[in-house]
């Protein structure tokens, strides 16, 4: 069995988790222009709730639902009661980054204070391995890829075929104009945080399903590839984030097959740098550079 083909399969799993996380990240950023660096820690929070659900005997689906709801509510509350007041008091792009870093630290240490400096595993049944076209997947990995495909399809349908999706795209493109055209941008922003949070929660649960053991820092350490995938695709562009996740996921796994695995992150980020040198706005056209933060 070719290591190259195997590594493509493995890259698809990494890309699936990255896609869910980076689409959620970029969806919210596209609408609000707030670079939410507490995103990874919300993922961890959702994972801890999923852990409690599985420990209480809940199924994986219940854990995923609980993770999505936790991510959604946490993101909405953070925006409504913390980020929005800052924006209304005139805090702008750089200031908001510092605010989100602070929130990240508070969340990380809060989770550690509640759950302890230890490691946790979701209580899930073990699944068999399946071979497909020279690649190997476990049942859980197939499930993760399935969840990613469904999540991407839902995001695509929502953005393309619903009034809400159109309103979100309009707000992302030009909030002033959207408001002038009768779009309730406040409500759109709230919905964007809820949706982004749901994807964040699902990403947190799928991440800890895949890594099998997690702690209060797990989501935070996954944030860099998430942001990288979003940047690669063109910040604020959900379809770009999907492509970016695929590129980062595949590049890291395929490179591990041919160079020292210690440098697989370096190779993935090397690809990011090269793409951005050729196309600074990312793979898809960027829509956020000239906007201010929106609350």
């Amino acid at each position: 069995m070719s290591l190259f083909v195997l590594s493509i399969g493995f890259g698809l799993i990494t890309a699936s988790i990255l896609a869910i996380a980076s689409v959620g990240f970029t969806l919210q950023f596209g609408v609000t222009n707030i670079l939410n660096l507490a995103y990874g820690d919300v993922m961890t929070g959702a994972a801890f709730i999923a852990y409690l659900v599985t420990r209480a005997g809940g199924s994986l689906w219940a854990a995923l639902l609980a993770g999505a709801i936790t991510g959604s509510l946490a993101s909405y509350v953070l925006n409504r009661f913390l980020y929005t007041p800052f924006v209304r008091h005139g805090t702008r792009l750089f200031g908001m980054i510092i605010v989100t870093i602070s929130v990240s630290l508070v969340l990380q240490n809060g989770l550690q204070a509640i759950f302890g400096a230890s490691f946790f595993s979701l209580v899930l049944p073990r699944t068999a391995s399946y071979g497909f076209a020279g690649m190997i997947f476990t049942g859980q990995q197939l499930l993760i890829m399935g969840i990613a495909v469904v999540a991407m399809a839902v995001v695509h349908s929502l953005l393309s075929y619903t009034r809400l999706g159109r309103a979100m795209r309009a707000t992302a493109a030009d909030p002033e104009l959207a408001r002038g055209c009768g779009v309730a941008t406040d409500r759109v922003v709230g919905v964007a945080w809820l949706m982004s949070g749901a994807l964040c929660g699902i990403a947190g649960v799928t991440l800890v399903m895949n890594v099998t053991s997690f702690s209060s820092t797990t989501g935070g350490s996954f944030l860099i590839p998430v942001v990288a995938a979003a940047v690669l695709g063109g910040v604020g562009h959900p379809y770009g984030a999907m492509i970016g996740a695929l590129v980062i996921g595949l590049a890291s796994e395929v490179s591990a097959a041919f160079v020292n695995p210690a440098y697989k992150e370096v190779v993935a980020f090397g690809v990011l740098v090269v793409v951005l040198l050729v196309r600074p706005q990312g793979i898809f056209a960027e829509i956020a550079t000239q906007k201010e933060v929106v609350a």
Binding site: I13, L207, E253, V254, A257, P261, A262, K264, E265
Partner: peptide, 14 residues
């Protein structure tokens, strides 16, 4: 191996 990655399957196959 790089720490805290989401996957090490390629390294395992190698």
């Amino acid at each position: 191996i790089a720490l805290n990655q989401s996957s090490y399957r390629t390294e395992i196959e190698q």
